[in-house]
Amino acid sequence: MIIDFAYIGEILPALFGATLATLRIAVLAFGLSLLVGLGFAILRLSKRRGLVAGIFAYTEFIRLTPLIVQLFFAYYVLPEIGIQLPAEPTGILVIGLHYATYTSEVFGTGILAVQRGQWESAWSLGLRGWVVWRKIVLPQAIRPMVPALGNYLVQLFKEVPLLSTITVYELLNTANLIAGQSFRYLEVMTLVALIFFVISYGSSLMIANLEERERSR
């Protein structure tokens, strides 16, 4: 088997474009998971039993079943109940809601790590409700959480290829299309694996670095 470098040069632009699409999907899904996860974390700290139990049940169900089946479920069932959503937003929604169960745990731990005195001082200064969250608690809570959240972003990025099963043209699906025409699966699939490896290994090195700095603060 001789590896054809000219061919690799030919397909690189297309794979590069698909890599950008994959990154875009990952970032959007991660943004959604941060929003929903933070919401879950704050609601869980409230003492409403029904709400807390509901979030717990949701978390268990999402984590104990495969993401790929959740994707199929959403992709086929949403149109049946009248929600017409293209494949890509459907995928972003499902991945975002899946990873919210992980980010909410990070947020929960981070929020609890803020010292009680911070709340009490804020209250005694006459600050109330959302202002205390936004100005006092969250700014202190978020910084130490960045490495843990970053690791989830890397993990999420590696799951974007699952969207190929619901017809989204991210990196894997694009690669499949290219390889199907030329039948050069070895070159194409190896490139895809390398692209994923470089991005996720590079990011985890950066995160480890960040963690080290956070610890020595």
């Binding site: 590696k158 799951e159 290829p161 699952l162 894997l172 499949n176 699939m189 190896t190 895809v192 694996a193 994923f196 490896f197 996720s200 290994y201 985890s204």
Partner: peptide
């Protein structure tokens, strides 16, 4: 560093 899904395809 690569996902199981990519490896399965490979």
């Amino acid at each position: 560093g690569t996902s199981a899904f990519i490896q399965i395809y490979w």
